[in-house]
């Protein structure tokens, strides 16, 4: 059997996900034995190429991005979104909370017409995404798990429980008990509760569990003294595409 052809593409992001792949160190060499990495960047002049698995990181933020992602989707059998920007819009999507014309004017001045820009969206807002690797930056164990499963032809296991589950199993003191607020009760697990583990509150970089109780989350944050607007801001730091019902809260 020939090795699966794997490609990596990036859109608007900080490149942290890409660097995180280098942190795989030893596993990186084993991966190279199992797959053919045919693209690490875009190759627009080579449109005939097809990929077994395309990994896409970064969020969609310009009309050119939309064209590119459609093209990548057409050529890929499986498409996997990597990291918060690709999966939920990520930090880039904070831009959406400001009036678009104003942001463009501030950034580009009189030349704003030269830089067409659209609201920042996750990859799934434009094309079908088959699998997701969450986290900011993307979680490397999850990336390996999905890659291995796909190579073996298995369906990868998807996390859909709260960070609290992992935090409790590490026997951490509950962050809420320390007087800080925490998004652990609604955030999707898979990170090993890394922030509470290090004395910090969870800021929800992995997006939310699919059955999130939004009202409950808002109530919990209200108990920590956050106004409704503040609570919504906290909840949507990394998530433009989730909790859309909170759009327009003033």
């Amino acid at each position: 059997m020939s090795k699966p052809k794997v490609a990596f593409f990036d859109f608007a992001s900080c490149e942290g996900c890409q660097l995180n792949k280098l942190n795989l160190e030893n596993s990186l060499l084993s991966i190279l034995e199992l797959v053919d990495i045919v693209e690490f960047r875009e190759a627009m002049d080579d449109r005939a190429d097809e990929y077994d698995i395309a990994f896409v990181e970064g969020s969609i933020s310009t009309p050119t991005c939309v064209e590119r992602i459609h093209d990548i989707r057409r050529r890929s059998k499986i498409l996997v979104a990597l990291g918060a920007c690709a999966v939920q819009g990520g930090i880039n999507a904070l831009r959406n909370s400001q009036p678009a014309e104003w942001v463009k004017e501030v950034v580009y001045g009189d030349d704003k017409y030269l830089f067409p820009s659209i609201p920042v969206q996750p990859v799934s807002a434009v094309v079908k995404v088959d699998y997701e690797v969450r986290g900011c930056p993307m979680s490397t164990p999850e990336f390996l798990h999905i890659l291995k499963s796909l190579i073996l032809g298995r369906k990868p296991e998807i996390f859909d429980h709260a960070v609290c589950v992992e935090c409790k199993s590490s026997e951490n003191e509950c962050v809420l008990e320390t007087g800080m607020f925490c998004l652990g009760p609604v955030t999707r697990a898979g990170c090993g509760a890394v922030c509470p583990e290090n004395g910090q509150y969870c800021s929800g970089c992995r997006g939310y569990v699919s059955n999130i109780n939004t009202d409950g989350a808002l109530e919990m944050l209200a108990e920590n003294g956050l106004s409704r607007l503040e609570a919504v801001k906290r909840l949507r730091l990394f998530c433009s595409s989730e909790l859309v019902e909170l759009d327009g809260v003033k």
Partner: peptide, 29 residues
């Protein structure tokens, strides 16, 4: 240009800045 970050920092709690501004760059967070 990084002014995007300066703009969307506005209106956010300052204590979040050490965790938001890291996301400017994955090379030197």
């Amino acid at each position: 240009e990084l002014r995007g970050f300066e703009k969307f920092a506005q209106g956010r709690p300052v204590e979040e800045m050490p965790r938001i501004t890291t996301r400017i760059c994955g090379v030197c967070p």
